[in-house]
Design a protein around this nucleic acid. Sequence first.
DNA 1: AAGGAATTGTAGCAGTCGCTACATACTAGT
DNA 2: ACTAGTATGTAGCGACTGCTACAATTCCTT
Lengths: 181, 181
Amino acid sequence: MPPATDPKPALLAALADYVLKNGLNSASLRPMAKAAGTSDRMLIYHFGSKDELITEVTWRLAADLADKLDDALPPTRAETEAACVRDIVRLLRTPTFQPYMMVWLDIVSAAIQGNANHSAAGAAMIDGYLDWLEQRLPETTKNKPVRAKALMTLIEGVVVMDAVGRSAVADAAIDEWFASG
Amino acid sequence: MPPATDPKPALLAALADYVLKNGLNSASLRPMAKAAGTSDRMLIYHFGSKDELITEVTWRLAADLADKLDDALPPTRAETEAACVRDIVRLLRTPTFQPYMMVWLDIVSAAIQGNANHSAAGAAMIDGYLDWLEQRLPETTKNKPVRAKALMTLIEGVVVMDAVGRSAVADAAIDEWFASG
DNA sequence: AAGGAATTGTAGCAGTCGCTACATACTAGT
DNA sequence: ACTAGTATGTAGCGACTGCTACAATTCCTT
């Protein structure tokens, strides 16, 4: 057989879907293969190794998340920074984005354990979100790059609080940071 | 044999040490047993199941971290909130505390995946750190409980940024949040 | 000394892991 | 028709997983 139409895009879509539902770190070849309608044998054949597969899925999910964020929050500038952050946090708590947050924390956790692939992906994702956020800051915001870093770091803290069931702490934090002035 | 002196404390110490070095989610019985100078057989015997063992180790590590934080930053009030946060962040980046941050992110990651034990532990740890932080806020800080939540959420964001190698973003965020007024 | 409970080693089970050897297709180019 | 290269199923390897059955050892109590 000559190279048929590359089956990897379809596989990646199914694999990404599986990872979104089941997490990244605990994903293993046979269940993934089943979910993608193929065999572990073929996954290794197409991706070379589980490591490369996971790396590709990770980047694919990062791209998907970026797309979904763009769709949900088009690049129009918010009225205030508080509204901007609150909109984003509300979005991230949505059933659509919650799985991505799960995978995101998988990546963060793997990164701090020294996984180079996940560390690189995590850093790239942060860089991307910083740009993304910058474009949505209010017109009036001065020094947007720095403000984006400040707000993004706060939002990451909110994600952690949400993860351990302390959304109330996160909400209080947001209220407090945007109180008075 | 009648009940000898309870061997669990010594075991827990060795197990906690192992987890600090190797992470929580990837810990398995046989390597742990070897590190503790015993067998997987005995670990199950003493702890009932791996799940209960991991739960005990988690709480033990949480207590250890609390102790170490107390030692490193005695309950004296800081001059300013900025100094307080900066001291804490500097501390958490220390080789002493980095392993605890690794385990912490393991817990957060497991919590968002629905692990009830880790979710409970994570929530309890947050509650504990909030009290701890509150006692270290400057005398002049009004509404300390709310300020503690605001600062703690920011610090958690810093931990995430550090994990993926974006400490620079975290530093810029801290500078920005404590700039001007 | 005998009995009973606590403790521990040995060995193994049934399952999963990533990955691979082997054989078999299948199809396009010659 | 033949060949070369691509694609795929079957079966299994060796390592690891949490856990357990069984038997032995140890020590206190009676």
